[in-house]
Write a protein that binds this DNA or RNA. Sequence first.
DNA 1: GGATAGTGGTAAGTAGCACTATCCACTCCC
DNA 2: GGGAGTGGATAGTGCTACTTACCACTATCC
Lengths: 213, 213
Amino acid sequence: MAELSEAAGVPVPTIKYYMREGLVPPGRPTGRNQADYDQGHVRKIKLVRALADYGGLSIAAIRGLMHELDNPATELHRLLGAAQRTVTEHTEPRPGPHVEEAQRRIADLAARRGWHWEPDHPSFRTAVGVLSLLAEIGRQDMIDVLDGYAEAAERIAQADLAALGDLSDRERVVEVVVIGTALGDTLIAALRRMVQAHLSHELLGGHVEPPAR
Amino acid sequence: MAELSEAAGVPVPTIKYYMREGLVPPGRPTGRNQADYDQGHVRKIKLVRALADYGGLSIAAIRGLMHELDNPATELHRLLGAAQRTVTEHTEPRPGPHVEEAQRRIADLAARRGWHWEPDHPSFRTAVGVLSLLAEIGRQDMIDVLDGYAEAAERIAQADLAALGDLSDRERVVEVVVIGTALGDTLIAALRRMVQAHLSHELLGGHVEPPAR
DNA sequence: GGATAGTGGTAAGTAGCACTATCCACTCCC
DNA sequence: GGGAGTGGATAGTGCTACTTACCACTATCC
């Protein structure tokens, strides 16, 4: 187990904790107090850390995902839903005078772009929540980003789809969906900030060098 | 204060807590145990809840942002950096055999797209972390999403910039930057999932209707 | 063959966070 | 003039993600 800990870069007690919580399967016992672990274990532990550190997921959420990985859901379509539900913790929009308008706005957007959607989809509710909140604090002007974001979201989802690749390799697809859903958000946010910093540097400039020549 | 609590939809003890923690300024005292609150207070409390519920920020991070709001930084360029740093909690990539390659990949990407960047920018480090992690667990195939994501990130940052609008209204710009940085990620993630659900429905279909005609 | 270090398993303890409850002297308003 | 409410402070709560400590046992090195 010391080796396992070394290989995965995670302290022994934490590994024990993960096993207790069912995030990582137990080793194959070779005696009353000895067990073997293989590369699969190392990988799983690293994955757990990745989802926790970069995905910002709770242990409970990760447990859900890991179980999803272990019994590949029968229907791919349902798997995506499960991954989405597990990864996103949901906040219902607080009722307020602007909720309806926000709902209408997102519905319009979806209609315009030809998205099929359902009014009780958690992400729809989240988007509505953010929008109605912006309206409530009088920042309607920020709602105009919506179309730009929507366009970007389409581009992202397209990339996600491409990453799935060959759909017949079930196990692989399941893993890509689960990891991609959780870590994708983080990666996108990081790239967004890089571009923002770049634009900010270019337009507002830190110490603007005098142009060469 | 009961009115304030009512208007903001937040329990009284929580408001007291926020004031104690400096997230919300105290009211204008009108007696030894009485104070006046105005619309600004209601707005600020709502904003705090928004950042906590939808932005997923910690109280400490929100305090940082609120202070940013209160003394508009002199330089816009620095403000963005401050907002970014406050919103994103940073995880240094664990050293591993793939970190260097990941670094090279992101650097290449940035060079290809003409992004100016610095090697110690937190978002750069985060992106590197995610990539090297994917490599470590043998999911290099997922790294191919990078270009698609980068394109989307450019689109997003462009929308963000457009939302800033007139740069001369300092106070407004500061607010848009702070709110946009925090809530933008959530909004983007929500839209991403909506598109994913749509595509998934379309391609893998739940109950696929027989084509009309 | 005997000390020492390490193992799997479990139970109890801890640190940090975001509140929540309780108390207090006071004061508003009916 | 009396009960409800106020600002302010201190202490307590529930949750999460680990850590510590302990156990009986075993592998291994000398």
